[in-house]
């Protein structure tokens, strides 16, 4: 096998329950048709990336990319103009005054 081909697997690597649980975690509603095609696609993708298990990984990684390191910003409140605030609020699907409106979450 070479790196351009991908093996056909007969194993079903992800179960319907697992998929349901992932969809719940990711807040995505799936239809039954979505699920059956996703299970097949997951099998094909996972059997491809599973070849990573062959690699001898002895190296500790610190998640770096080249010489780049993350830089944190200073912990200060950044003031924005009233018009910028208005622009941001206007993008919200629903607002009440200067608040973004959502459904009631807490029962009294």
């Amino acid at each position: 096998m070479n790196e351009y081909s991908h093996p056909v697997t007969l194993l079903c690597m992800i179960t319907l329950q697992e998929l349901d649980s992932l969809a719940t975690l990711a807040r995505i509603k799936l239809t039954d048709a979505d699920k059956s095609s996703l299970i097949k696609e997951f099998d094909s993708i996972l059997s491809y990336v599973d070849q990573l298990k062959k690699v001898d990984v002895s190296l500790d990684t610190d998640g770096r990319v080249g010489a780049v390191r993350n830089v944190t910003r200073s912990d200060e409140v950044v003031k924005i103009s009233a018009s910028d605030r208005e622009g941001l609020l206007n993008e919200a699907p629903d607002r009440e005054g200067d608040f973004i409106a959502v459904k009631k979450m807490i029962e009294q």
Binding site: L52, V55, V57, L59, D60, T61
Partner: peptide, 10 residues
């Protein structure tokens, strides 16, 4: 594992 292999490739 992918992160470690990424570093090996780099």
């Amino acid at each position: 594992r992918a992160n470690a292999v990424r570093q090996m490739i780099t």
